[in-house]
Structure formats: structure tokens, C-alpha cells
Amino acid sequence: MFLELKQVGKSYEDQQGRFEVFSDIDLSIEENQFVSILGPSGCGKSTLLSMIAGLEKITDGTILLEGEEISKPGSDRGMVFQEPSLFPWLNVKNNVLYPIKKQLPKNEAEDRVKHFLKMVHLSKFTDHYTYELSGGMQQRVAIARALSMDPKVLLMDEPFGALDEQTRDLMQDELTKIWQETNKTILFVTHSIHEAIKLSDRVIVMGIRPGRIIADINVDLPRPRKRNNPDVVELETQVMDLLKVEIDKVLKEEIDYEASN
């Protein structure tokens, strides 16, 4: 198996004791698969992605990438964050160059930067700085930057969360194309059920209290997947019902807590 999570758990220690975000996550992801993760806020999606990236300590279990245990960040895993995370002191070109500047000969590195900037349609903006770019453009640069170091896995944490509907739609189409061109394995966290189903081969639905995987759905529909395709709509309804149970659980808990205080 390409990317394998075995009995993975995460807990934080604080003054009040242990807080368990999730536990016993078992997940196997094949190479080139596009996998989305859906779940209510706070179920630990970002935490899980950060653990795969090597940014967060794995408190229980193991994560293996091509059989090798993950313990720290590495260039085999690229990450695109929801928050803007380009370096404002570098222009677009140098941002994309950043991860490969020391690793590759200059010519090769610059060719690669050109290649990926073209892929995200930003060839015209190589000399621009972050403050001159829109949110969507910034995320495209971030995607090009993550791709430039040629990772085996691309981890994306709500990369389009802050974009308007139309831009988001365009970005989804672009991402599908990029994925088909580069054959990356993509792990994609989102809050949008439609986005997950439109993009992925497989949708993982996470639950909360306790954090865990509640469904693992294969999306066997031909691409491109139109919004009004009945199969898409049916799948969306199915996932929506699953999620509703989880979200209601959190709401009820909060209301009960307030009532008892």
C-alpha cells in the first residue's frame, strides 16, 4: 500500500488532562488516488493532515509512506494550507523556486518553476509579489510551490475555502487537470460535500466525539461531474445525511451544556 495509516490517534495534554481528538484511524490510500476528507468542524481533519505532513507529533499508531514511517516533514509530502502561506518577501517565481533552490541546479530549477507556473496559468505574474495577487491566485502559487518539489503526496487543507463560488469552481477544474497531468496522490480536506464528490475517487467522512472515520465512499462516476448529474446529487444527499447526524451531535451537546449551567 502506498500511504498507510495504522491505528493512528492524536491527543493533547493540558491542565485539565488528556484531550483526545481522534483514535484508531485506519486508512490505506493507493498511489494516484484523489481522496477527500469531510467532517464536522473540530473532528481533526487539519490535525490528521498535519500529522501526515510531519508537522504534528503522532501520539498513537504509525503512518507509513511507501513502507517508511513518517516522523518529520519531508519533500515527499507537499502541503497547501487554507491560510495564506506564501512568503511575502519573494515574488511569485521565487516562491515557487523556494523548495528546490538548494536541491537542483539553477537551470533545471527554473525550468521546473516555469513549467508549474504555466500549469496554474500564472506565467504572466512571475515578477509579482503576494500583495499584488488575489486570493485565488495566491492559492495557485501555493499549489505550484508544493508541486515544484515533486512530492509523492499532495496534502491540501481546505485550499479553496476562502474563495468565492465561481473562482472555486474554476480552481476545482484546474486541480482536476493538474492531478490528471501529474499523477499525484492527493489528500484533500474540505467542508463542501459537492467539492469532495466532484473531485475525488474516494470520500472519507469523519465523525466527532469521538473523532473517527464513519464512512469510506468510492465515487465511481465519470469525470467531469456536473452539478446536476443525478448520481452526484444522490451521493451528495447520502453524505449530507451522514454528516447531519454528527453535526447535530455537537449542537445537542453544546445546548445541553448550556442548559445545565
Binding site: A53, G54, L55, P73, M79, P84, S85, P99, M149
Partner: peptide, 20 residues
């Protein structure tokens, strides 16, 4: 956030200090 991003691109230690 910038430190996190840099770390995912393999930057750490002294390099993190002077590059980020």
C-alpha cells in the same frame, strides 16, 4: 503559518532562521 509552510518544504534549523 510561514514557519509551518517552510517546514513542509524541508527547511529546518539554521536554514529556517536565515531563509524564513
Amino acid at each position: 503559518q510561514l514557519v509551518k509552510a517552510a517546514r513542509t518544504m524541508g527547511t529546518s534549523g539554521a536554514e529556517l532562521f536565515y531563509r524564513v
